[in-house]
Amino acid sequence: MNAITNILKEFPRYLWSGWGAIASLFLFLAVWDLGNQINGSLTLPSPKETFIALWQLMQTAQLWQDVQITVERALWGFLISLVLGTFLGMLAGNFVTASMMSRPIITLIMGVPPIAWIVLALIWFGMSDESVIFTVVIAAFPIVFVGALQGARTLEGDLNDMANSFQTPLWMKLTDVYFPHMFSYVFPAWISALGMSWKVVVMAELLSTPDGIGASLAVARSHFDSAAAMALVVIMVIILLLIEYLLLEPIKREVEQWRS
């Protein structure tokens, strides 16, 4: 497909444009280093200590196992939210009554802090994968749902009239009018939901499982191993940044060129 070749063609230039961001990240590392010089390594390990700890962690099989477990949980939760949220959101968006009904419920779900959902999930599912995935879904689903709902609610109207005025066939209306429109609402929602999933999964793991990055973080805390804790934080940030800037952002740029 054209979009994919375009993304690949622009990719080296896109990567190079990251140097500006990397420069400010290095400046941030300098400030972090300063923080270490003021507070000492026990409170805030220096970036160098952290990266060394990270390097050592990366030599262990344990870390990769944890990363894999956490990524799997996050992805399951995200995928369930994505499918359910997109489908139900579009469905609700097609009926005024359904969208009226769903709004207060969504507000309610979003109003309960994720930490409270973890406690409930622990009661319902115990210390298990299900608890974590449930919490991820409950945090990410409303974001996707609202995006899909708004997309569907705004489908009717002028552009639809325009398409009808040219007796546009249904299939073409789907591909040329409805799908791009829906996508422009749903895709940003997916991205925020993915970010949310990643944050929530670690928090849920910290409290409710014996494995995963969240659990390792809990262990590092109990051992007062601040370098290891920082290293784990760095890993989580790096994974999120990689997904966000190497995968999602190039796609977003290509498919949303038309946006002002």
């Binding site: 230039r13 190079w16 444009s17 140097w19 500006g20 990397i22 420069a23 400010s24 990240l25 290095f26 400046l27 590392l29 300098a30 280093d33 300063l34 010089q37 220096s46 970036p47 160098k48």
Partner: peptide, 21 residues
């Protein structure tokens, strides 16, 4: 000899590479 100098020099490197865009 302060350790922040390492990161600051790397920041300068990245910022200069950024002008090549």
């Amino acid at each position: 000899q302060n350790t922040t100098l390492g990161w600051l020099a790397l920041a300068a490197m990245a910022a200069i590479l950024n002008t090549l865009n």
